[in-house]
């Protein structure tokens, strides 16, 4: 397909005046319809499980939708306007949950970009026990969120948890309410998430590091570049596509945070750590306010699309 496009466009670009303007099919091109045939299996899945739900969700968001009740009254954009009018019942809860997700994302994304990179750089060195080291850092990621969250909930408990016990034993404050006060709860939630998922990002970084040709480092060394200069001018530019990818998926997965606050803090104190997805789930699946929850999800999606565009723009190829 890509080749095809190039062939079609080239005459128009290189011969702006002499071209006939008529589209030319290259001699090796398949008959029409064949590409669609090849894509059909994926398109079916994509259409059935992504496209259709997106459209259906939009339709739900325009109704007062409770699937267990026979009637779904049409409400137009009321579910959306409620999110932006301060006297509605959902306004403060919704924006509070968006804020919680924002805090979590801002706190966790930089750490999840930098710490795994450092780990990957170390993993990339040759030293004894390297495989054990790699496995250790990746191990938490294998655990499910339920295991991780329940484990840390007990470790971080203010009164019966091991963390405060140890902190007290070495002379640090031993009364920190990790799960019931902010900002400690944010430190706990972000810390646990970084511990849990850094292995994943580190593995992607590691793959990226191994793609950078050894010759470039050799050349840099011959030119007398220091370790920092090699990192700054060889490693980082070489990693750029990987960093862009990791940034994107980390932002999206952080914005989707649900299990950690749901299991560790229950949104405490108050609803301060109740994140967006947590609140949407409560609204949609527990209170059956599905129209409401769908509208909220679309607002979050819009924010995420904007964030993705921003990332793409930040990592764009700069020319000239």
């Amino acid at each position: 397909m890509a080749d095809n496009v190039l062939v079609e466009q080239r005459p128009q670009v290189t011969e702006p005046n002499g071209g006939t303007g008529k589209r030319v099919r290259s001699p090796g091109a398949p008959p029409p319809g064949v590409p669609w045939l090849f894509m059909a299996p994926y398109l079916l899945l994509f259409g059935g499980f992504v496209l259709l739900p997106i459209v259906y969700g939009l339709w739900i968001s325009l109704h007062d939708y409770d699937y267990t009740l026979p009637g779904h009254p049409w409400v137009g954009l009321a579910n959306y306007t409620a999110l932006f009018s301060s006297d509605s019942t959902v306004f403060s809860d919704f924006w509070n949950s968006m804020k919680a997700t924002g805090i979590f994302t801002l706190g966790s994304v930089p750490l999840l970009l930098v710490v795994p990179l450092a780990v990957a750089l170390v993993m990339n060195q040759r030293f004894k026990g390297r495989n054990v080291f790699r496995a250790l850092f990746f191990a938490p990621y294998v655990l499910g969120v339920a295991v991780v969250a329940v484990l840390w909930r007990f470790l971080l408990d203010a009164n019966i948890g091991l963390v405060n016990q140890v902190a007290g034993a070495v002379g640090l404050p031993d009364k920190t309410a990790w799960l019931t006060s902010t900002p400690s709860a944010w430190v706990a939630l972000i810390g646990v998430t970084v511990w849990w998922t850094l292995g994943f990002n580190a593995v992607i970084y590691l793959a990226g590091l191994q793609e950078i040709p050894e010759e470039l480092y050799e050349a840099a060394r011959v030119d007398g570049a220091s370790a920092w200069q090699r990192f700054r001018h060889v490693t980082l530019p070489g990693l750029k596509p990987v960093v862009s990818f990791v940034t994107m998926i980390t932002i999206i997965s952080s914005a989707n945070v649900f299990g950690q606050p749901y299991l560790m803090t229950r949104g405490a104190p108050g609803t301060e750590t109740r994140t967006a997805i947590y609140y949407f789930t409560d609204q949609g699946l527990r209170n059956y306010q599905m129209g409401n929850a769908a509208a909220m999800s679309y607002v979050l999606t819009l924010v995420l699309i904007l964030a993705s565009l921003l990332v793409t723009w930040a990592f764009r190829e700069r020319r000239g």
């Binding site: 909930r153 408990d157 203010a158 009164n159 019966i160 309410a177 799960l179 006060s181 803090t265 229950r266």
Partner: peptide
């Protein structure tokens, strides 16, 4: 009672 008794810890504390 101590402050900040998080979920389940009153019961776990009792058992312990």
């Amino acid at each position: 009672s101590p402050k900040n008794v998080a979920q389940d810890s009153q019961y776990v504390g009792f058992k312990n």
